[in-house]
Nucleic acid binder design. Structure first.
Lengths: 205, 205
DNA sequence: AACGAAAGTCAACATGCGTTGGCAAACGGG
DNA sequence: CCCGTTTGCCAACGCATGTTGACTTTCGTT
């Protein structure tokens, strides 16, 4: 990706704090570069200079826009992500729908997905782990409780551990043969297990 | 843990390379400290000085013993770990036996387990990921192929992703409610899924 | 055309890191 | 008792990093 100079067009005088409204164009450019690098290398390995380099600007610009490396990460880590719509799926197909939802998103570009992005950094940073918990609650636990599944939290936890394990092994660690299977093969292999987590009776408490 | 000065006892003139036989006592002390810190913070966040500090010695000592930070990690990352004995278990109970094997080990002290140790560092270091692959092949894929399971590699991959996900969510990220469940509850929840991965028919290839 | 603020660059600082070499104490055989 | 090896500590180097401040360039407004 060549260094897109891009004329930032001075931006519109939108609703932004008086603290310092900057060019919205380069702001997004920086955030995209930051997300890509944070997701690819993790927090420590990602340097401000590298982010600035990929964004085609100077490192001090990143500081002016986001204050600090932590501020940059915080800004990069807040993004909308849509929970899967499993309510519109018959109960027997919800396991597969759940797996397919995430696999489809991850197949496009794992680095672009918030869950993979957070996962990578959460491993080395405890505060990010809390954020991952929140995100996960909203995106997996939420839909399950909305459908009145009993023990929704525990079922979501089991399902989550499997989905996280998949994301970890396939997209981050790239372990074989998991990394070279097709998306459909992954879905076919995982869906029955997820379905089972949804429906199997719970023992103990 | 107070700084154990400990007289290294000059050690026995054991079989050690001519390059530099050092005190075996402090060598192990350093390795223990290194393993604990690597497992707790990951590779980047662990500093030579911190390892030396926890071992109660100087940082340069670590260098003399292990040459470099990478050498220290390599030394810390080589340790025996026993594959689970599922051959002596009836086929119907192998899923549970597999889960229980790892959960039992992790309940004692996750930081002491090689798999958790490697997992944490593999996320930020690609070369460690390869080592994790090797370890995993030996400890999970091996026992399965030895029992002539069809599609042993793929089944092991699915099982592995679930076990890795558990280790990640419960012991590293400490996500709720997974982190606060009892070991038995974990085993009860996961065992049927693992058993299913062992026995369910494989679709596609 | 001139002004001034915004946008961006450049050089430098302070810090913490891995790493190195030199120097002091402990130990053991002659 | 002395001396060489081993074991350890101290101070420092070189480097990359996050961060800062002064300087230049762009560009809309008057």
């Amino acid at each position: 990706m060549p260094s897109r100079a891009s004329r930032p067009t001075a931006a519109s005088p939108d609703a932004l704090g008086v603290g310092g409204p900057r060019s919205e164009g380069t702001r997004r450019t920086i955030l995209d570069a930051a997300r890509a690098l944070f997701a690819a290398r993790g927090y420590e390995q990602t340097t401000i200079r590298a982010v600035a380099g990929q964004a085609g600007i100077d490192a001090s610009m990143v500081m002016r826009y986001f204050g600090s490396k932590a501020g940059l990460f915080a800004a990069a880590a807040t993004r909308d992500l849509d929970p899967p719509d499993i309510a519109g799926v018959p109960a027997r197909g919800r396991g597969e729908a759940l797996v397919r939802h995430f696999v489809n998103r991850w197949e496009v570009d794992p680095s672009e997905d918030m869950l993979v992005f957070l996962l990578r950094t959460a491993v080395t940073d405890g505060s990010v782990a809390e954020q991952l918990q929140t995100t996960f609650d909203r995106i997996v636990v939420g839909p399950l409780t909305a459908l009145d599944y009993p023990d929704a939290e525990r079922r979501a936890a089991l399902i989550g551990s499997q989905l996280m394990g998949l994301a970890l092994c396939r997209y981050i660690l790239q372990l074989q043969p998991l990394a070279s299977l097709s998306g459909d093969e992954i879905v076919a292999g995982l869906a029955p297990a997820i379905q089972r987590y949804l429906t199997q009776p719970m023992t103990g408490a």
